[in-house]
């Protein structure tokens, strides 16, 4: 599945297909994946057993005006970035928390534990955000 997505993104990168075509192809690949999952409990079980953690976070913006954006971010980067927060010295962390609180974000980075990070990454496999705007613009965020 990931190989098919990568192949589509390669075609997009090389300019052989447009972002809109890539979006349609990704939708087809996603639909096929869903059908495979519905094939039966045994097949679904086997799929779950072999399913690996998602490797990339995709952000896809398709605009009716033709302004399209595709971003593919390695989830390992996200994991490393989140882990880095636990290495920030306490004094610097207090300053960060204070500044964030001043900006209206009362988010305590100290509460972010390594085991929580793994849970977040694991949960991303199930996550898909699909926003359809009234003007036809579409924003899709998913991990694969």
């Amino acid at each position: 599945m990931t190989q098919e997505r990568d192949r589509i993104l390669d075609l997009l990168a090389s300019g052989k297909i447009t972002a809109e075509e890539a979006g349609r192809l990704l939708d087809v690949v996603g639909a096929q994946s869903g059908q495979a999952a519905d094939a039966g409990p045994a097949a679904a079980g086997a799929k779950t057993a072999t399913a690996a953690l998602p490797k990339f976070l995709y952000v896809k913006v398709v605009s009716v005006k033709g302004d399209n954006v595709n971003v593919k971010i390695p989830l390992r980067l996200l994991r490393a970035g989140l882990k880095l927060t636990s290495l920030i010295p306490p004094q610097a962390m207090e300053q960060i928390d204070k500044t964030m609180a001043e900006k209206g974000m009362s988010f305590d980075l100290k509460n972010l534990k390594p085991e929580d990070l793994e849970e977040i990454i694991e949960s991303l496999r199930e996550m898909e955000i699909d926003v359809d705007a009234a003007n036809g613009d579409n924003v899709r965020v998913y991990a694969a």
Binding site: L9, A13, G66, D67, N68, V69, V71, P74, G81, I88
Partner: peptide
């Protein structure tokens, strides 16, 4: 922290960004 930042740099491999207009 410094080693973590270097590790973060290593994890940027594979990042892809495509921006398209008409």
């Amino acid at each position: 922290l410094a080693v973590g930042v270097l590790g973060l740099l290593g994890e940027t491999r594979g990042t892809e960004i495509f921006v398209e207009d008409k």
